[in-house]
Design a protein around this nucleic acid. Structure first.
Lengths: 112, 112
DNA sequence: ACGTCTGGTAAGTATCGACTTACAGTAAGT
DNA sequence: ACTTACTGTAAGTCGATACTTACCAGACGT
């Protein structure tokens, strides 16, 4: 859940999504990632830091270079949140269709 | 895809996620939503505007009140993006395990 | 040891966005 | 018609953040 929150915030930035999409093709070094992006290398480093804290990527040292790769952890947390939300929404959706006269849910509690 | 992009940006904000979670329990009017949140009612209106443009909620007029509800459209687009990304990442993940000497992907093209 | 390659970090800027109050407009009740 | 209820929008403020250049540190080859 806390991972899911950070993951959503991380994926909100278009540049970070581009970084992730390129990492989805396989692990890369920082310089390789920055080469195909319209931002500077330090900017990519900062984005990778955010992605790492969100559990979306992992890094390993390899000589002087640092290799980044996709980490399934953060993605799993986000998918779990979406699945739970998806099911809950559909459930309420069908319940709503059964009682169309209660569309405003006026009698339901505001705060659980 | 364009819907998925807007949806990620929309879910990046904690307040908007809270709005969505409350809507998952059933359709509500703006005032009802704002009553349980620590922000003002106009703020909720602006959040709902963003959520609507992302295809995550739909609204219908009902007298003087405006009822908002979950719209499966945006959620579906986001799940589709995640599923595609997820599969692609796992595929590259397993391919990486088969050729552990090529961990840097040094010979792969940088830009497709 | 020295120069080179690689990448993280500091400092600064500038844009974006989340929030507020104030105002305007529409719908229903008296 | 007048009041009340409900909501969207405008204007403005303030903090977050995405980006830049400059600097610094570790790993490798000569």
């Amino acid at each position: 859940m806390t991972y899911a929150t950070a993951a959503f915030a991380a994926l909100a930035d278009p540049t970070r999504r581009r970084v992730l999409e390129r990492l989805a093709a396989g692990p890369r070094a920082v310089g390789e990632l920055a080469a195909g992006l319209p931002v500077s290398r330090p900017a990519v480093s900062q984005h990778l830091k955010v992605l790492k804290e969100a559990g979306l990527v992992s890094d390993r040292q390899e000589g002087a270079r640092r290799i980044y790769a996709i980490d399934p952890k953060g993605l799993g947390a986000m998918r779990a949140w979406l699945d739970r939300f998806w099911d809950e929404a559909l459930e309420a959706f069908e319940a709503e269709l059964e009682t169309p006269n209660d569309t405003t849910s006026r009698d339901r509690e505001i705060d659980p």
